[in-house]
Nucleic acid binder design. Structure first.
Lengths: 145, 145
DNA sequence: CGAATTCGTACTATTTTAGTAGGAATTCCA
DNA sequence: TGGAATTCCTACTAAAATAGTACGAATTCG
């Protein structure tokens, strides 16, 4: 199990934006620079997030992106589902009877998806930020040992 | 999150073998036929499972595969980890300090992996079989409503 | 011996992921 | 009012992962 680069980059940009919230607009280029992400790719990702209602944007000189809502009201689950793009290639219910192996695979997939969703849906962007600052603190400390 | 075909096929074959346990050897061709899987691909998968210690095989006429251990002693987690092939492209610890976004991605990946592993490691092949037969029963019932 | 089967390698095709190129549309501001 | 800055948009391209196939050697049974 691994998040795609697209998801990773999107998340990293959003984390940046959340840290700045509710300040003014930040440009894609700056976001890309401060997390060292490919700019053009990031642009496409940010655009998708705007369409998904997670970001607001302002075009033109002095424009950029910012969160559309406070971090406390943004679910990491929704965010990631949008990023993964998974256009829900949902298993179309097969006609007729399933083979035993197919049932097993189905059951397992359902269990895994449920576990995955639980982790993601129980987490807001605000909470994630908190975890990050804790972990960041530890990281700092380690340099002084 | 979705299991690969390789994993799916391997699991389906193993489910078949578990249903027959502790009977005699079953041939790849028969396994492929009864779950409608591509035979040559399945062969490669079964081979990997044998190398992983999940199956025993006998070559030559009258040969085939069978589980190396009773289903109760086979963990679905171990099985799937072998199937996924994940040659543990583990994040090599980056030198220096992590960016906040990177920390967030890391945290999330860890949480997701833990949840995933928990589901898989808490399940034996025997238990999975039981779930399948329950679900299969329900499926049968639905036809008679 | 000859048929049946696993074992093994090497190749091909398809799909998904990760980007890049190039420019139109909009907005600010001097 | 014109140009610089920025998002927005479409269409490619490149690379990697996935899903197989082809072909045959090695082994075993009867």
């Amino acid at each position: 199990m691994r998040l795609s680069k697209r998801t990773e980059y999107g998340l990293r940009a959003v984390v940046q934006l959340a840290k700045l919230w509710p300040n003014d607009y930040v440009q894609s280029r700056d976001l890309a620079k401060s997390e060292t992400l490919p700019n053009k790719f990031l642009e496409a990702i940010l655009l998708a997030l705007r369409r998904g209602g997670f970001l607001e944007s302002k075009v033109g000189s002095g424009g950029g992106y910012r969160l559309a809502r406070p971090p406390r009201e943004i679910s990491v689950g929704e965010l990631i589902r949008r990023l993964e793009g998974r256009l829900t290639v949902m298993d179309i219910a097969k006609p007729g009877e399933l083979l035993p192996g197919e049932i097993a695979v189905h059951l397992l997939n359902d269990k895994l998806t449920a576990a995955y969703d639980k982790v993601l849906d129980d987490l807001t962007l605000e909470q994630l930020l908190e975890l990050v600052s804790k972990a960041g603190g530890l990281q700092q400390q380690m340099y002084y040992i």
